[in-house]
């Protein structure tokens, strides 16, 4: 299928784009890589009558170091650019490891970092990784500029805190904490598919090598990025052991997530896989935290 007819604008500055969005309000949508928006339009799941193409705005595509060890990524930075960036590899190893797991080479050469977040798909790796890493998002409109923490940005299925006239322009990732290991694991029908279930994990060790802090954020596990809050409670303050990870996995897969059934897998199987992945991700994160001790 092809999308229904729409008007198309190709501004070259952020200001111009914001003016178009302000003018058309709910009828308009920004177009980034188009790897999600265009299929949604083809399936009539989205029917914007105006597209504001961001691809001609050079100012939105960058990766910059921040003072103190963090990173800023422009919304229009392509997945492939982030994937190959040395600074990302150094300062945001979880993101670096995540990128090749997003779709295929072809899609990563078009799809954008900001587009993936703005799309707010609970199956998107970056949505969960950004929450696990406590990222924050710079959002602008003609009227105002605001910063939204990742854990407040995602409101539900394909729903974010973005207002129709707003653009996501930058993502900031804080410095990666010391003594911290990471892991992003997922299970898909085929390696490049959206996953049946996945988890982004970070694990910070304390002085006595106990778990000081744990973040588990699940993909394809509910209406948004599903944070393993109860599992984190199980982990935090405890000394590391396989039994501890098992208990956390049990709690996360039964209490923290809310997966549904579709033609690819049942909810029960997804819970089972979440259990397996939680254990594996925690083990991997733990192994990676150790060398930093």
């Amino acid at each position: 299928m092809k999308p229904p007819p729409f008007e198309y604008y190709a501004p070259t500055t952020v200001e111009e784009a914001l003016a178009r969005l302000a003018e058309h309000g709910y009828d308009a949508k920004p177009l980034a890589g188009g790897q999600s928006l265009i299929p949604m339009m083809n399936f009539r799941l989205a029917q914007p009558s105006v597209l504001v193409d961001l691809n001609n705005i050079p100012d939105l595509s960058y990766i910059r170091p921040n003072e103190g060890g963090g990173l800023s990524i422009g919304a229009m930075a392509r997945h492939s650019m982030v994937e190959k960036d040395a600074l990302v590899a150094e300062r945001a190893p979880l993101v670096h490891e995540t990128m090749p797991k997003i779709a295929t080479t072809q899609i990563r050469s078009r799809g954008t970092f900001g587009g993936s977040l703005a799309h707010a798909d609970p199956s998107a790796e970056l949505v969960c990784a950004s929450v696990a890493l406590d990222g924050k998002f710079k959002v602008v409109s003609q009227q105002r500029e605001r910063w939204i923490p990742a854990n407040e940005f995602f409101l539900g299925l394909f729903t974010s805190a973005l207002e129709p006239e707003e653009l996501l322009v930058e993502i900031q990732l804080p410095p990666f904490p010391k003594r911290t290991g990471w892991s992003l694991m997922e299970i898909a029908r085929r390696p490049h598919d959206f996953c049946l279930i996945g988890v982004a994990a970070t694990l910070t060790l304390g002085k006595k090598d106990q778990c000081k802090k744990a973040r588990l954020v699940y993909l394809s596990a509910g209406d948004g990025p599903m944070v393993g809050q109860q599992a984190a409670k199980v982990l935090e303050g405890q000394s590391i052991s396989p039994e501890l990870f098992e208990e956390a996995a049990e709690v996360a897969s039964s209490a923290d997530i809310d997966p549904s059934s579709d033609i690819h897998a049942t909810a029960e199987f997804r819970r089972h896989l979440a259990n397996v992945l939680t254990r594996r991700a925690l083990e991997e994160a733990y192994k990676r935290a150790i060398p930093n001790i």
């Binding site: 299929p39 295929t104 085929r190 490049h192 033609i263």
Partner: peptide, 16 residues
């Protein structure tokens, strides 16, 4: 038919 698109009807590709 419940899966009339490549999103839901999966075929092997070179990576598989």
């Amino acid at each position: 038919m419940q899966n009339p698109s490549f999103v839901d009807y999966r075929i092997a590709t070179t990576t598989d």
